[in-house]
């Protein structure tokens, strides 16, 4: 464990908590893409299947459980409890266009042709594009609530910090995982235009509005 990965994990946890609190407190999931949340739940389920068979550390197991519970809880809030506030008219990204290619790629490019490893690879590839429905929804509505932009900033920062963690681990342990690194770079690049808008607008107290 290194400080970059720890801060990255905490940033990820912060993002998930921000979103959960936003939905719970405002009793509304307006502006939030339920499809992205479903994809994130799928990412955690397929990645953490080894939760009980492969103990790494208490921290690792506890965080996996927290991610699973909070992401499924968010999906529950969006599609059941506060379903009436779910904006399905703007959340129209065809996620099968993500899941099918990612599923195919995980069979073709992986470290080990075993079920657990293929599902882990699927999860890594899926996570890199899972935010697309959310970004697509914001581009359709043309704006995002400030709290949602904080959520996205924390979420985008987590994988950016993981990239620093991979550089650090390469030089200190000689560890590198090309699949995770390439997918992590794609994932972080997808946030770049949002990062620009967040830093130039939201941090100056303006509403996040995408150029129409």
């Amino acid at each position: 464990m290194n400080v970059f990965r720890l801060v990255g994990d905490l940033s990820h946890l912060l993002a998930i908590i921000i979103l959960l609190l936003k939905i719970w407190k405002t009793r509304s999931c307006a502006g939030v893409s339920g499809k992205s949340q479903i994809l994130f739940s799928l990412v955690f389920i397929t990645r953490y299947l080894d939760l009980f068979t492969n103990f790494i550390s208490v921290y690792n197991s506890v965080m996996k459980i927290i991610y699973l519970v909070t992401s499924l809880g968010t999906v529950y809030l969006m599609y059941f409890k506060f379903k009436a506030t779910y904006d399905s008219n703007h959340d129209t990204f065809r996620i099968e266009f993500l899941v099918v290619p990612v599923g195919g790629l995980s069979f073709l490019v992986n470290h080990d042709f075993t079920p657990l490893e293929i599902l882990w690879t699927f999860s890594i590839y899926l996570e890199s594009v899972a935010i697309l429905p959310q970004l697509f929804m914001i581009s359709k509505t043309g704006e995002a609530e400030t709290i949602t932009s904080h959520y996205l900033f924390a979420l985008g920062s987590y994988r950016a910090l993981y990239i620093v963690n991979w550089v650090y681990r390469y030089y200190t342990e000689g560890f590198f995982d090309l699949i995770a690194i390439v997918a992590g770079c794609v994932q972080t690049i997808l946030y770049c235009d949002f990062f620009y808008l967040y830093i130039t607008k939201v941090l100056k107290g303006k509403q996040l509005k995408l150029p129409a």
């Binding site: 990965r5 080894d50 690792n60 681990r169 342990e173 000689g174 995982d177």
Partner: peptide, 10 residues
């Protein structure tokens, strides 16, 4: 080469 199997990152 991928070391540190199994996956020890979240």
């Amino acid at each position: 080469r991928v070391l540190g199997k199994p996956h020890d990152e979240l």
